[in-house]
Simulated assay, not measured.
Amino acid sequence: MQTEDVTEYRGCVIRPVVTAAEGGRYAAAAIVTDRDGETRTLGVDGNFAESQEARDQAMELAIAWIQRRNIVSDHYVRRG
């Protein structure tokens, strides 16, 4: 398993994780830590020919999850 660079997005830290699989393929996941320190691991469905492709898909999944979470959270927060 190899963890790659860490990216911050909308107050969350994203750590893409790329793992070598059988046959020279790669699997990916993203570990997302929010401002409160809560961590969630998001798995990417698929296997990839290149590690960079796997990393990119993990980042894309994490960013989409953060965006949806922010939209829902902002929608239900009452502003004083």
Score class of each variant (00 low, 15 high):
residue 14 I to D: 02
residue 9 Y to P: 07
residue 22 E to G: 08
residue 75 H to T: 14
residue 43 G to V: 10
residue 49 A to Y: 07
residue 64 A to E: 06
residue 43 G to M: 12
residue 74 D to F: 13
residue 45 D to H: 00
residue 23 G to Q: 03
residue 70 N to L: 14
residue 39 T to G: 05
residue 61 L to K: 01
residue 42 L to C: 06
residue 44 V to I: 04
residue 46 G to Q: 03
residue 52 Q to R: 10
residue 15 R to M: 11
residue 40 R to N: 06
residue 28 A to T: 02
residue 32 V to R: 00
residue 19 T to A: 02
residue 58 A to T: 02
residue 61 L to W: 01
residue 32 V to Q: 00
residue 24 G to N: 04
residue 51 S to M: 07
residue 16 P to W: 03
residue 20 A to F: 06
residue 68 R to G: 15
residue 47 N to Y: 09
residue 51 S to N: 08
residue 69 R to F: 12
residue 34 D to T: 10
residue 4 E to T: 09
residue 27 A to V: 04
residue 3 T to P: 03
residue 54 A to Y: 01
residue 65 W to R: 04
residue 76 Y to G: 12
residue 77 V to P: 06
residue 11 G to H: 15
residue 70 N to H: 15
residue 59 M to W: 01
residue 58 A to F: 00
residue 50 E to Q: 11
residue 58 A to N: 03
residue 1 M to T: 11
residue 57 Q to H: 11
residue 47 N to E: 15
residue 60 E to C: 06
residue 10 R to F: 11
residue 37 G to N: 08
residue 76 Y to N: 13
residue 12 C to S: 11
residue 38 E to I: 10
residue 9 Y to C: 05
residue 23 G to N: 03
residue 17 V to W: 04
residue 54 A to L: 01
residue 51 S to G: 11
residue 73 S to P: 09
residue 33 T to H: 04
residue 7 T to I: 08
residue 59 M to F: 01
residue 77 V to C: 12
residue 16 P to T: 06
residue 54 A to K: 01
residue 15 R to P: 05
residue 63 I to T: 13
residue 44 V to T: 02
residue 10 R to H: 13
residue 75 H to D: 14
residue 4 E to Y: 09
residue 39 T to R: 09
residue 38 E to G: 12
residue 32 V to L: 02
residue 43 G to W: 08
residue 36 D to C: 12
residue 8 E to G: 05
residue 58 A to R: 01
residue 67 Q to N: 15
residue 49 A to C: 04
residue 60 E to I: 08
residue 38 E to M: 13
residue 48 F to E: 01
residue 51 S to V: 05
residue 13 V to R: 08
residue 75 H to L: 15
residue 79 R to N: 13
residue 45 D to P: 00
residue 58 A to V: 00
residue 13 V to D: 05
residue 67 Q to D: 14
residue 8 E to Q: 12
residue 55 R to Q: 08
residue 3 T to A: 05
residue 27 A to F: 04
residue 54 A to I: 00
residue 52 Q to H: 09
residue 18 V to F: 06
residue 42 L to F: 05
residue 31 I to P: 03
residue 60 E to K: 10
residue 48 F to M: 00
residue 22 E to S: 09
residue 15 R to W: 08
residue 16 P to D: 05
residue 73 S to C: 14
residue 23 G to E: 03
residue 12 C to W: 09
residue 76 Y to T: 12
residue 71 I to K: 14
residue 17 V to G: 05
residue 25 R to G: 08
residue 2 Q to S: 11
residue 40 R to Q: 10
residue 73 S to M: 14
residue 12 C to R: 04
residue 80 G to Y: 10
